[in-house]
Design a protein around this nucleic acid. Structure first.
Length: 362
DNA sequence: AATATTTTCAACCGCCAGAGT
DNA sequence: AACTCTGGCGGTTGAAAATAT
């Protein structure tokens, strides 16, 4: 029953990765990108399944991970996001640059949950335990529900008493838990991203980074955000369809393999380009796909494949989820925000993948 | 110092959706 | 339509590390 095919293969190593395996994987991806993960083990000389390689890279080896302990600000943000998104770890991770969903999930399960309970908050509902279970009397700390039905959480590392010790409220003036909250929050907290002189902005919200101007005519792999308030039908589907494919990987930040200069402009020389193709540079990420023959993959190795590159600015600015009108736990609704209309699911999917990818690689 | 217990977190598992055949 | 393959996700496990006794 339904085990992943890779698990059937014999002689595949499991368990912790050795430094030698790490080195092989790093060398391979640094040089060739991951392409199709299922082909990585063979090409990299690893006795692992592709899934294991992917996980090792995403959660541990990719160079843009922050590592280290979480700051109080990060913990606070995780709690806020969890209150709205629930256990959508990948979506939460998308808002915390350099952090992985696995890392956040571990933090939540090992630490934050406990802290919240100690402060009388049910970590599942984010309501006082007294409301969740009549047998539990919530402490008279700083986490009481306010008049709007939300609660405030003080610094979780502080002792619950006295209430005045609350030095960072969870949400200053907590609105209902909808994505409007995120719109408001991030627009203000990242407003500098909107001050780029050449930026185009969304009227209904924002995507806080510069967009490409127009895709170069010969580019096939560029990310293209049309920001001229056109409807989705006006957005060139040829380019929009490339979004998910171009955002799966990021270049290494290591100075030895990554040069900012190669990222800044589109390959037709115009400014404002985010991604660059057809101009050599550093292979990273989705260089190949599973539909290519081995010869084509080899051609990639020889440097004939288009490379997708990330703009460093993009990597540093959090992505934003769109407003959702769905009641209860909302789902990101990118196209509604972005295009002002519904029914273009592909944009939603792209958005989610972008958001996730951004979280993974920033 | 030795042992027991608890915590951390890297990795795995199973499921799902999408794409391709 | 049914099947396979793949990537992605959230839940869970268990070895290693940290802490308590």
């Amino acid at each position: 029953m339904g085990r992943h095919s890779c698990c059937y293969k014999q002689k595949l190593r499991k368990g912790l990765w050795s430094p030698e395996e790490d080195e092989k994987l790093i060398k391979h991806i640094t040089k060739f990108g991951h392409g199709c993960w299922s082909s990585v083990p063979k090409l990299a000389g690893l006795e692992r399944c592709g899934k294991s390689c992917r996980l090792r890279w995403i959660n541990y080896l990719r160079p843009d991970l922050k590592r280290g302990t979480f700051s109080q600000q990060e913990e606070k943000l995780i709690i806020e996001l969890h209150a709205v998104l629930g256990n959508k770890w990948s979506q939460i991770a998308a808002q915390l640059p350099g952090r992985t969903d696995n890392e956040i999930k571990n933090l939540w399960n090992s630490s934050i949950k406990k802290k919240l309970r100690q402060r009388g908050i049910d970590p599942n509902t984010h309501k006082p335990l007294s409301e969740v279970n009549d047998d539990h009397k919530a402490p008279s700390g700083s986490n009481e529900k306010n008049s709007q039905g939300s609660y405030q959480v003080s610094n979780l590392d502080e002792k619950p008493e006295p209430p005045a010790a609350s030095n960072y409220p969870l949400i200053d003036n907590p609105p209902p838990a909808t994505h409007e909250f995120f719109l408001n929050r991030f627009v203000t907290s990242h407003e500098t991203a909107n001050k780029q002189p050449d930026s185009h902005h969304l009227s209904a919200g924002f995507l806080p980074f510069n967009y490409t101007q127009q895709p170069p005519p010969d580019s096939t792999g560029d990310l293209f955000f049309n920001t001229d308030s056109k409807s989705s039908s006006e957005m060139n589907p040829e380019y929009s369809n490339t979004i998910s494919n171009t955002l799966l990987s990021a270049p290494p930040r290591s100075a030895t393999v990554f040069h900012q200069n190669n990222w800044g402009s589109s390959n037709n020389g115009s400014n404002g380009g985010f991604f660059q193709t057809n101009s050599g540079g550093y292979p990273w990420g989705l260089l190949t796909d599973c539909t290519k023959s081995q010869n084509q993959i080899n051609a990639t190795v020889d440097g004939e494949q288009d490379y997708t590159k990330w703009n460093d600015q993009f990597l540093q600015v959090p992505f934003l989820m769109g407003k959702s009108s769905i009641e209860g736990k909302p789902e990101p609704n990118f196209h509604e925000l972005y295009h002002g209309q519904q029914g273009v699911d592909i944009y939603n999917k792209h958005f989610q993948r972008i958001s996730t990818s951004y979280g993974h690689f920033s």
